Computed example of a mutant assay.
Amino acid sequence: MAGALPDGDPVPTDGSLPSGAAANAGKNGFAVYVHVPFCASRCGYCDFNTYTASELGGVGREGYADTVLRELEIAKQAINPKKVDTVFVGGGTPTLLSADDLGRILDGIDKTWGLDEKAEITTEANPESVTPEYLRRLRANGFTRISLGMQSSSPHVLKILDRQHTAGRAPQAAREAREAGFEHVNLDLIYGTPGETADDFAASLRAVVEAGADHVSAYALIVEDGTRMAARMRRGELPYPEDDVAADRYLAAEQALTEAGFAWYEVSNWATSEAARCRHNLLYWTGADWWGLGPGAHSHVGGVRWWNVKHPTTYAKRLADGVSPGHAREILDDEDRRVEDIMLRVRLSDGIPLAGLDERGAKQALDDGLLVPEAYAKGQLILNLPGRLLADAVIRDVV
């Protein structure tokens, strides 16, 4: 389970927002995130706000969709965006809920704010949690995109990560999703796991390409305090990840995916076309508004950011009592928003205008060979491949 939530200002019991924020909701796009906090088992590296049955003390998945719909009733009174551009259901393992329950939540969002006719509707899924029939039901309920947690095609790497699916299940699930009519299919990879070899990761990349996915997310393993993997490393049972190895894996991903027809559009994300890019995440990265439904979910509307209470039992009780599940919130000032905008946009292939960035820092990044010179000459900061490896350092320099 994730750590304690940060403190902040109180959230009004009716969930209302300052008038300026509410009036401009969705001006630059509007997304809805739905958090489903249930997992069949816990992966050793995971510190997300998720719970297995034994950790919930009798709280079940039944009725969860109704609880989320109650939060939507509060949200409807708070803001009225013109339309919903994207919906992303994450977790946890959303596909532990029935496809029809996920469909009911989606229908509730449509009735509350109205889905754009071309809305992107994504759910995450563990490969072992879906079947061809389940995928067909998801598609019939309006989902257009699925993101499958593959992580690796190597059995021994999956074992270290405490994943439950077999090595070939994720690519097979991707093919089944295509057959069910999903427009876009993403496969998630994790690289740098202790014991993973260069050949292991190369095999994972080949499996992704052969599965027919049109989007790949690849992230270096991060060992979070409080996880089982962190404890194993402290005891010396596993070695800590190495930065040089992670860099080598990233370069391997870039080469293999580019050769297969993918192109990077965010440091950790590749797509086969502009249409295959994750529009939901792009809204996050380009300063749009979103409402997060579910325990522990974060939201942002018009410079107001808030986060819900973390535990599903507390979340459900708040809503049963007719009050907002918001734990706390903060109002971002102009400088906060400027810095966050830079931190996110620098990671995109479109980059960010040089105007407003620290001039010396940007010039240093150029001199260090971390930027595209032609873009810099035209007033745009865009990372080249070495710059992507050092994106965090570039961001620190230009803020």
Rank of each mutant, 00 (worst) to 15 (best):
E340M: 01
F182T: 13
A140K: 14
G58K: 09
R61M: 15
A75M: 07
R338N: 06
E133P: 02
E274Y: 00
G57D: 14
L17N: 09
D7W: 00
W285N: 10
E55S: 04
A246L: 03
A218F: 02
V301P: 01
M233E: 14
T197A: 05
S54K: 13
A78I: 05
A276R: 10
G302P: 12
E254L: 03
V309F: 01
D336V: 01
Y250Q: 04
Y219F: 09
R347D: 09
F38T: 11
A271Y: 11
G195R: 03
V216Q: 02
A297S: 13
G8D: 08
G114F: 12
T112G: 05
P353F: 01
P325H: 10
R360I: 01
L390G: 06
G108A: 06
A320M: 04
D9M: 10
P127A: 05
E330M: 11
G292M: 06
E374L: 02
R232N: 07
M229D: 09
G103T: 06
L283V: 06
W285R: 05
R136F: 00
A328N: 05
L381V: 03
P12V: 04
G296V: 04
A31W: 00
A65P: 03
R163H: 06
D214N: 15
S299T: 04
A256K: 10
Q77V: 00
D101A: 13
L390A: 10
G142A: 09
F143A: 11
R169G: 04
R145H: 08
E359H: 02
D397Q: 14
R277V: 01
S19K: 14
T13G: 07
A271F: 12
R145A: 05
R175I: 00
S129V: 00
A198G: 13
S98G: 15
L348K: 07
A252C: 01
L148H: 12
A256R: 13
D289S: 09
Y45P: 00
A246W: 02
A213G: 09
G387H: 08
T122S: 15
D341H: 10
A247M: 01
T50P: 00
K82D: 15
W307C: 04
Q164W: 00
T314M: 04
V36N: 11
D14F: 05
R305M: 02
G91D: 09
A391D: 13
R305E: 03
L282C: 04
R232D: 15
L348P: 02
E237P: 05
R145G: 08
L97W: 07
S152F: 13
W270P: 08
R228G: 04
L205Y: 08
Y33R: 11
K363W: 04
R279N: 09
R329D: 03
L187G: 08
G261N: 06
A253T: 12
L293N: 11
P312T: 09
T144S: 15
A65D: 15
I79D: 04
A177K: 12
R305D: 02
L97I: 10
